[in-house]
Design a protein around this nucleic acid. Structure first.
Lengths: 340, 340
DNA sequence: GATTAGCACTCATCAAGAGAGAGTGCTAAC
DNA sequence: GTTAGCACTCTCTCTTGATGAGTGCTAATC
C-alpha cells in the first residue's frame, strides 16, 4: 500500500495536533480543525491504514491516534518545513551571544542558556574537542623560590596552568633551558599527539636535569589532559516540568537521572556524526531515551576543533522550530568562535 | 505547664519514629514500639499537652501526631545526641578526600559529593571567599607578539590568568617595568581592597605607558573579580526522589527550582554565622524552604578565608546523623585546606 | 468503487458512596 | 494519676455507574 497525498496530509495534521495538545487525535477533531475536505469516516479508514503501516499507534481502543517514531521519522525526513525563525527570535539569539565575553566557558554557557530558553526544552552542549589543536607555547614562570607556574597555550587560544612545587630553590638558568627545550619539542604538536614517545624523547634531551624534569612532566601531562577534556553543559533541566509527559514523577525522575550521567550524554551526542542530526525515540541507543528525541548539531572552530550542541525533549517536540533554533544557534556560535 | 521527663521522652520517640517512617505517629504505635512504660491513653493525654504547647501538630483529627518546627528545635537543642560516626563511615569520608588532588575545584566537588552521598540528601558547598586573601604576584608573560598573558597569584595559592591583546607589538622593556610597578603596588594587598583609589594610583605611576596600561587594567580587574567570586556546588539533587515528601511532583519541582537559583542558595548559607548551624523549616527566611531544614557549617583556611558547606533536606531529617556527617566533613575539609 | 452516515461497542475518567482502618478524645473505673 | 472502653472523626481505597470521546463495521449514497 502506497502513501498517497491524502494519507500524508492526515499524518501531518495528526503530528501537528499532537505536538500542540499532547492528546491522542481523533477523526472528528481532525475533520473539524483541519481543512482536509473529507469526512470523519474516511479519515478513520485512512488512519486505520496508517496504523497498519506503522506510522501511527493507539494508546487504547477508544482513544485517538498518536504518531509512532516511524511516523515522526517520515515527518522529519519528508514533510517538515524548516521555518525561518521570526526576526525577534533571531535577535534574541544574537543578543545573548553578544553578552558573552571572549572566554570559552562563557560562550558555551550562553549557548546552552539560549538553546533551552528558545526551545523551552533541555539543552546540552559539549565544549570543543581540542585534541586536534596545536601547542603554541609552554612557559615556566617562577612565582616564588620553591614553586613555579607551568603555563600551556594552544594555538586555538586556550590557556591552562598548574603549579609545580619543589623542595629546593629553582635555578633560573635551568628553567630557561628547560623552557627552551620544551618549546622546541612541543610547539606545533597536536595536543592529542603528545604521547609516551614524545615524553621519552623530552626526557632524553634533558637528562641533566632529571630531578626537575620529573617534577614538571606529570604536571604537564595533567595539564594537557585537562586541555583536551570535553565538558558537558546542561541548561533548562527544569523545563520538563512544564510538559505533560513529565507530570508523572517517575518519568521526570528518570529523565533527570539520565542527564545526571555526563558520560552518557557525551555518548549520545558524539554518536551523531551529521552536521544536523535528529534521533527519534527508540532510534536512540539508550533505553532511557526511548521517549525522547534529540536534535544535535556540530559546530567547528577552524575546521578541526569540533563540539556538539543539542536539545533533548519528548518525541512530541516541535521539530520545525527546534531544528530551526539549533541550526541558527550553531551558525552564530560557529561564527563567534571563528572570529576570534 | 512544664516539660517533664516523660513528655520529653514521648517527644523524642515521636521524632525518632517520624524521621524513620514519615507517617504521623499514633499513641498505640508509640506504646508498642517504644518502651515507655505507660499506656496508650496516658500517651494520648501527654501528646495532647505537647500539641497544645506547640511541639506537635496533627495533619487531621484522626491521624497521629507529627513534630512541629518548634518540636524539632527543642529536639535539636536539648535532646539530640551527636552520634560519633561509625568507623566505616569515617573511613569513607576520609577516603573520598584522599582522591581529590590539590586543585580547589576538585576538593570542593569531592566535598559536595561525599556530603550528599553520606546523607542521602542534597549538599551545597560554597567555594572559599578569597576576598581577604593577599596578592602574591602579578606577571605579564608574552605568548606571542601581540598578546600576553596576565597571571595573578594569591598567597592562598589561587592562580588566575587572562589574555591581553594588542594591535601593536609589546615592548619587552615596557612590560618588565609595568610588571615591576604592578608588583610593588599590589603585592601584599588584600584582593577585596583593590579599589578605585589603588587603580588610580597605579595609573599615575605609569602615565608614560597609558595605552598599554589601559589595556591591562580592565583585564586585571576582571581577573581579580573572578578570583573573589564565590561559586556554588550542588550534589545529590536527585536524592530527593527517594523521599516520600517529594513523591508529589509539585513539591519536587519547587525544591529543584529553588536550588536552581544560585544567589538564593548563597543567601541561605551566608545567613548562618555559627560554626555549625541548623535552621528548621519556617525559621528559614525563604518561603520555599518552609518544609526544609538546613544544616550548615563554616570551614576556614588560615582563619581568614571562609567557605560554607551544608545539607538541605526535609524538616524530617535525621539530625543526629546529618550533623555528625557535616561536622566530620568540615573537620576533614579544613584540615586538607590548611595542610597545603 | 470510493465516500459517508449511522450505530453498537470499547475504554478511560470522574464523582459518589460504602467500608475499613487508624487514631483521637472523653468518661468512668481502677 | 493512670487506664480501659467506646463513640466519633477522618482518610484511604475500592466499587459502581454515568459520561464522553473515539473506533470499527455496515449499509446507503454519490
Amino acid at each position: 500500500m502506497g502513501l498517497g497525498e491524502r494519507k500524508l496530509k492526515i499524518l501531518q495534521a495528526i503530528i501537528k495536533d499532537f505536538i500542540l495538545t499532547a492528546e491522542p487525535v481523533g477523526s472528528r477533531t481532525l475533520m473539524k480543525k483541519y481543512d482536509l475536505g473529507i469526512s470523519a469516516a474516511t479519515i478513520r479508514n485512512e488512519m486505520s491504514d496508517l496504523e497498519e503501516m506503522g506510522f501511527l499507534s493507539q494508546p487504547h481502543t477508544s482513544a485517538g491516534r498518536i504518531p509512532s517514531d516511524k511516523g515522526y521519522r517520515l515527518y522529519v525526513d519528508s514533510l517538515m518545513m524548516m521555518d525561518r525563525l521570526a526576526k525577534n527570535q533571531q535577535d534574541a539569539i544574537q543578543k545573548s551571544f553578544l553578552q558573552s565575553f571572549g572566554e570559552i566557558r562563557e560562550i558555551i554557557t550562553a549557548t546552552s542558556k539560549v538553546l533551552s530558553h528558545m526551545t523551552k526544552l533541555t539543552s546540552v552542549v559539549l565544549s570543543p574537542q581540542f585534541e586536534q589543536s596545536k601547542l603554541k607555547s609552554v612557559q615556566l614562570v617562577p612565582i616564588d623560590e620553591k614553586s613555579l607556574l607551568l603555563i600551556v597555550v594552544s594555538e586555538s587560544g586556550i590557556v591552562r596552568n598548574a603549579i609545580v612545587r619543589n623542595n629546593e630553590v629553582f635555578s633560573k638558568e635551568h628553567l630557561e633551558l628547560i623552557t627552551k627545550i620544551l618549546n622546541i619539542k612541543l610547539k606545533g604538536l597536536t595536543i592529542g599527539k603528545v604521547n609516551k614517545d614524545v615524553i621519552y624523547d623530552l626526557k632524553c634531551d634533558m637528562k641533566k636535569y632529571t630531578s626537575l624534569v620529573d617534577l614538571i612532566i606529570p604536571v604537564l601531562l595533567a595539564t594537557l589532559e585537562d586541555m583536551i577534556s570535553v565538558e558537558v553543559y546542561l541548561d533548562g533541566l527544569m523545563n520538563i516540568f512544564q510538559l505533560p509527559e513529565y507530570h508523572n514523577i517517575e518519568k521526570a525522575r528518570d529523565f533527570l537521572q539520565m542527564l545526571n550521567h555526563k558520560e552518557h550524554i557525551m555518548d549520545l551526542l558524539l554518536n551523531s556524526k551529521d552536521e544536523l542530526d535528529i534521533t527519534i525515540g527508540t532510534e536512540n541507543r539508550h533505553e532511557e531515551m526511548r521517549n525522547c528525541s534529540l536534535v544535535t548539531a556540530t559546530y567547528k572552530v577552524n575546521d578541526v576543533i569540533v563540539g556538539k550542541i543539542g536539545v533533548i525533549g519528548p518525541t512530541r517536540m516541535n521539530y520545525d522550530h527546534i531544528v530551526s533554533v539549533v541550526d541558527y544557534v550553531t551558525k552564530n556560535l560557529t561564527q563567534l568562535l571563528n572570529d576570534e
